[in-house]
Computed example of a mutant assay.
Amino acid sequence: MSAAAPADQLMADLQYLASDKLEGRKTGSAGAALARDYIRQQFLAARLQPLQQKFSHPFDYSAGFSTRQGENLIGVLPACSEQAPVILISAHYDHLGVVGGKIHNGADDNASGVAMLLALMRWLSPGCRPYHYWFVATDAEENGLHGAKALLASQLWMPAELALVINLDMLGRHQQQPRLYWFGSTRLSGFKDWLVQQQLALPLRWRRSEGSRYIRGKVDWASASDHAPFYRAGYPVLYFATAMHKDYHSPSDDWQAIKPELIERVFQTLQPIILHLEQQPPAWFLAARRDGS
C-alpha cells in the first residue's frame, strides 16, 4: 500500500465531479448520471465487487406531494473471511444543480468527499482485509439524507453485522488553521485517547456543533450528513469534515478554491485511523452499539 494518495489523482477526480459538464449533480439530472458513470468506472478499475450483481441501487423517496427516485452506488471490497462484519465508507455525490441560472458545482460539497472515498478505495484495494469494506456514493443527501435513509432501511449487509459507518463530507477547505474535525461514537472504547497520542498529518478535533457567519444558527454534527440516520439507529459512526466557508451552497464552490495540499493531508490523516480501526475485533464495535433514539 502506498504511503500517500497522489494529490494529482485526488484532484483529477474532484475536478471532473465538480466540472460544469456535470451541472451540479442534482439528484435525477443528467449530470448526476455522469457522476455515477464516473464513480462506477473507478469501482471497476479498483476491482470492487458489485453488491447483488450490481453497483447501482435505486430508491424512491417522497418530496412534497410527489415521489422521486435517487440512486446509490455500492462497491464491495471483500474481507478475508466471508463471515466478517462490514465497515461502510460513505460520501454523497449529489449537489444542488443549477439554481437561478447558475451552476452550483459543489466542489467541496461534496466532490471532495467522493474523491477521498475513491482514494481510500484504491489504497485499501490490494488483497483482502479483516473487514468487508463497502464504498457507498449516496444520492439525495442535499434534500434530506434520502440515500442514507434508504440504505439503512434496506439492511443490505444482512446477515453480516454492520460494524461502523465512516462518512466523508466537505474535506477540501479550511479557514485560519488547517485541521480535520470529527464527530462520532464516544462508546468506541479508548479511541479518543488513542487519537490524542498520535502524530497525525493534520490536527484532529472532536466537534459536536458548528457555528459560522456563513450559515444561520448552528449545525448539529450528529445530524449534519449521511451518518445521521445510522447514528440515530445506534450504529457506531465517525464523521470527518474540515470547515464551513463563504462558498458553501453557492456557485463559487468550484474546484479552483480547493486546497490540494489540505486534501492530501486529510488522506494521510485518515490512513492510520482506518488501519487502527480495522485492527480492532468485532466485539469492540458491537460494544459501542446502542439502542436507537
Rank of each mutant, 00 (worst) to 15 (best):
R213S: 11
R207D: 01
A163Y: 05
Q176I: 13
N143H: 08
S212Q: 06
R207K: 14
A115N: 00
Q198I: 12
Y235G: 03
S225K: 06
W134R: 09
Q155H: 10
D226G: 04
R187Q: 15
L202E: 07
L168C: 03
W221E: 03
L202N: 07
V136D: 02
S125V: 02
W221Q: 13
Q198F: 11
A233R: 13
A119G: 12
A224K: 05
E161V: 12
H132K: 09
Y214Q: 07
P203L: 00
D169A: 08
H132D: 04
S225I: 08
R187W: 09
A160H: 15
W182S: 03
I215M: 11
K149E: 05
L171T: 03
N167D: 10
Y214F: 14
E141M: 08
V136N: 02
Y231R: 14
A160D: 10
W123C: 00
A163C: 09
M158D: 11
W182R: 13
V136W: 01
W157L: 06
T138E: 10
G184K: 11
W206E: 13
S154P: 00
A228D: 04
N167A: 05
P126H: 04
P178C: 11
S225Y: 07
D220R: 13
G190Q: 13
S189P: 00
Y214G: 02
I215V: 14
F183E: 06
A153T: 09
Y181H: 15
V219S: 06
M121Q: 08
E210G: 02
V165T: 08
R129T: 03
